[in-house]
Design a binder for these strands. Structure first.
Lengths: 337, 337
DNA sequence: GTGAAAGCGCTAACAG
DNA sequence: CTGTTAGCGCTTTCAC
């Protein structure tokens, strides 16, 4: 089954007794061909199982590879999976395929991945930049593919970006807790602390507190990157001498951690609002109030931007914000006691 | 920033005043080069922002593209996201990148995707086959890349496959419910009913019933593909004249549906075991007993197989089974009442 | 309608 | 240590 060389265009040509160019014409519907020739060519193509070599075609045509390179920090995170699906749906009809890699939130791995993509002559690059990564090298030279930063703005390169309304979303969620009467509200953020989304959401939280005249207390800010650490961080807040009566969780994993901690402590009296929705949010007890993101829309927006650039849009870099939506379900409406 | 041609190997060569081959030698560490030449070449490479064209290199070398094509039904499903991560981790050090596309569980889209991957001369193909897809065309001709079916066996092509221990896992889960004294156990399966994983898990369920001498009652089998439909199906079971006292959910989405339905009905007395783990399973009330799959291990196993084939393994097709693990947490130990 | 020659960017095979 | 020639599989250009 394996072994004999893959058939080439000229194999097909020999088989039929025509020139390679004629086969090429048939396959690409390019230039006139007699019906009879077409038939014989197609027959040979099928019989030999010929598959045109896209690398060769693209090279000759000088066109970029019909792929879009996507760099995410973590493929297992459903947030990024849904983002990828959103991109793919939007570019599929243009015949573009997703080339996807994970940076593991490591600038060096991210850069290696990007260089691979560039060497592969991808049509465009969509990047969720790692903390600490710099992207100046992408703009340094001529004629690269369009680049779009997703979920977080990149650093060192002025280019298109698509992000969620992190700050206003967090502000709205915090205001929701304040409206229920809370004055001591804890914040559980992702790590590292330099992460763009964490900073923005923390800023929104602080803005809401300021609006309400509630002083910011840094003892009420805790952190964790995964569910376990976030649960521990939450328990730390609950153990304070003056513990919070409400919590704002900064993303999906910290939300799961907070929910877990509250369940372990049987603290159904603590109000909780989470940034980013969870599949079972509605049936938690109490049902989880969230600031929902729309990851598929983020992906679709990035894809639209990319396609516009490929179509020759030369206007200045766009900064698109995909709105979040407060979904009150119960956990955010608990009063302080 | 865009406009001028991407620099090529001979641009660099001209710049330095050497031949293209010398530059190639420097970049590939292939053959001897003087330190001085190397320096000048690297300088020019950096100054021009030269990036070797991988398409051209692969073509000349006759090597396949250093990518692995992955076809999944749904990128947003965290199960497949984690699988993809498992593959990527395992092939990264070999310099392989993931080319990923979604078939949306549609045989036509799946085939189109596979043909694209073949045209791109991927090094290997990992496919989660859609229901109703046939893959005979993949084996028909000579010398394609190695193909591995994942999560489900493909049809019409004898090749490597990696699946979970669906049948024995479901059997174990059902036995767990039987051991708690249940005799009326409902099954909520994925759709379409022809889906391999559903069939296997249903078979495991039936085997366990048979072992215990409990007659199979097809009225206790319900179906749904997404969370909403599965919740409705679950409610249908609860509304039977002789309702089940326990449930086996066939995958992650049906599990979420079942959990939702039980929560809506406030039926904490119904025992439930779910195939595939959920992030918040431990803090549900009662905590959810699951038959856990290991999606990262599935991906890693597929990757190992692929690499072995690339390394020349010509033995007959492997059928690897990645074991599931029963994780008792409470919901499966509830007695019938 | 069809074919022959040239070349995309790179490296293998041989020179020197 | 370095250069020349040829050619990967395909399409462009121009010829018939």
């Amino acid at each position: 089954m394996t072994g004999s060389r893959r058939p080439t265009l000229s194999d097909v040509a020999h088989e039929v007794g025509v020139s390679a160019k004629t086969v090429s014409r048939v396959l690409n519907d390019d230039g006139p061909t007699s019906a009879r020739t077409r038939e014989k060519v197609m027959e040979a193509v099928n019989r030999l199982g010929f598959q045109p070599n896209l690398m060769a075609r693209n090279m000759r045509r000088g066109s970029p590879d019909s792929t879009i390179g996507l760099v995410v920090p973590d493929m297992g995170n459903p947030f990024f999976g849904t983002v990828a699906g959103g991109i793919e749906d939007a570019v599929r009809e243009r015949g573009l395929t997703l080339l996807m890699g994970s940076s593991a939130e490591d600038p060096a791995q991210e850069r290696a991945l990007i260089e691979t993509f560039l060497s592969r002559r991808v049509s465009a690059l969509v990047v969720v930049p790692s903390v600490g990564a710099h992207h100046a090298y992408l703009g340094g030279v001529s004629s690269g593919p369009p680049v779009v930063f997703l979920d977080r703005p990149g650093s060192g390169l002025a280019t298109d970006r698509v992000v969620s309304s992190n700050r206003s979303g967090a502000q709205e969620g915090t205001a929701h807790l304040l409206a229920a009467g809370h004055r001591r509200i804890g914040f559980i953020g992702d790590l590292p602390a330099g992460l763009y989304t964490r900073r923005e959401r923390l800023a929104g939280y602080r803005a809401a507190l300021a609006d309400a005249g509630v002083p910011y207390d840094r003892n009420l800010v805790a952190s964790g990157h995964d569910q376990g650490a976030s649960a521990a961080a939450t328990e730390g807040l609950l153990d304070l001498a003056e513990p919070p009566t409400a919590l704002l969780a900064g993303n999906n994993f910290t939300a799961m951690g907070a929910v877990t901690a509250l369940a372990r402590r049987r603290r159904k009296d603590i109000a909780l609002v989470a940034f980013d929705d969870l599949p079972l949010a509605e049936i938690l007890e109490p049902p989880l109030t969230v600031i929902a993101q729309d990851p598929a829309a983020l992906g679709a927006a990035a894809a639209r931007t990319v396609l516009a650039r490929l179509d020759g849009d030369r206007t200045r870099p766009r900064a698109e914000v995909v709105p979040t939506r407060l979904v009150p379900r119960g956990s955010g409406e608990l009063p302080p006691r």
